[in-house]
Design a protein around this nucleic acid. Structure first.
Lengths: 212, 212
DNA sequence: TCTTGTGTAGTACTTTTGGGCTATTGTACG
DNA sequence: CGTACAATAGCCCAAAAGTACTACACAAGA
């Protein structure tokens, strides 16, 4: 069962999406939001597998939403809705952390398969967008150099890099905030730095995009 | 007319590809190579629009070839041939500068459309590969997008990104630590974030941390 | 067996951050 | 001339981060 939340301000299309999801027994609606504010509040509780987000909302951009929601929702994947196949914004959404998109004219079957594809590790997109993504990729590298950091420490560092607080990390890892603090302390010692930003800088020098 | 060169060591499949290309009046064969060495010598003269390269050659990897040939062939695009849809090597080839791939089992029509798609600016690939490419992309750079930030705020952000404390920044800029704090608050407001790391993440998503 | 490293958790403390204010310049724009 | 905004600077306060320790359990290795 794949749980889905929807952020769409246009009531008609929102209902259409809801029906499209409910129509299939493999999917379940986890939350329906009409505004970014509402979505930001509720999505952390709903924790859907997939968030279906309109790219062009009245008040704010869906990209903004992804930017804000993504850091603390590591398990949720974002699927954008757009009217135009090759919208510049689709590309920006992918950079913000979305993993694919569907077109507003899509049939129910197309929506279903896009969600399933995403859930199973794919990323539905047009060749045109794919090309631009590759363009960005070229000229980059991603090594793997973990210094002497332990598994757990890398995990903490990865969460730190998302801007989470100690206590937020402690919740994610189900350990005490004190332990998180301890890990940080040890990380700083090993990297010879004094704070989060320095640690992340040093570490990111050596790649790690931490697939996750 | 799209010109195509082929690098494939297996004679049978090489001939099949040649026929597939010659079969369509929109394409023309520019060169056919059986080894990486031969290809490296001749492709600089042939300068095809598209180079069709087998990923798994007997002696060397097609990826190596792309790595070596690409720098001096800015107008040529590389299309890999692979046996397996989700070959790890496809991903590496994309990182090396290839723009897409075709499967060895592909029909003539599929080959034609992949080449055309590539020539017209697309990048044929599976959703699975696309997802991995996006994965690498996230957390990386490119554009110039300063949000509404002022010159001074960008300056502060740039120093923040080095891991400096408020008071260290205040010394650098010869202003009061309180003013630095104020700038930070304003930056956070504009980026809709709550702390340094989030701000830097958000900003770096959209490129540039102020070159330096 | 003893030591080392890791993950866990705690106490106590200081410094740094971040949020909410107000306020004064100076400059740009209508 | 007024309005808006950027840059400056201060205040207060609470939360978060960072430092310095101790402590225990467990696993791997000398």
């Amino acid at each position: 069962m794949i749980t889905v939340s929807i952020l769409e301000d246009h009531a008609q299309y929102r209902n259409l999406l809801v029906r499209a999801i409910e129509n299939n027994e493999n999917f379940a609606i986890k939350g329906v939001y009409a505004t970014v504010e509402e979505a930001l509040l509720k999505i952390h509780i709903d924790k859907p597998d997939i968030a279906l987000v309109d790219i062009k909302l009245n008040t704010q951009s869906g990209i903004e939403f992804v930017n804000q929601a993504k850091p603390s929702l590591s398990l949720t994947q974002f699927l954008m809705c757009t009217s135009y196949q090759n919208d510049e914004n689709v590309f920006n959404a992918l950079k913000a952390g979305a993993s694919g998109y569907i077109l507003k004219g899509s049939s129910m079957e197309e929506i279903h398969s896009a969600i399933t594809e995403l859930y199973e590790g794919g990323a539905p997109m047009s060749p045109y967008i794919a090309k631009r993504v590759i363009g960005l990729l070229n000229g980059k590298q991603s090594n793997q150099h973990t210094f002497g950091l332990s598994e757990r420490e890398l995990e903490v560092l990865s969460l730190l890099s998302k801007g989470l607080l100690y206590k937020e990390i402690s919740v994610q890892l189900s350990i005490s905030p004190n332990t998180v603090k301890n890990h940080c302390k040890n990380i700083y010692k090993r990297l010879h730095v004094q704070n989060k930003v320095e640690a992340l800088n040093k570490f990111n020098h050596y790649g790690m995009t931490s697939s996750s």
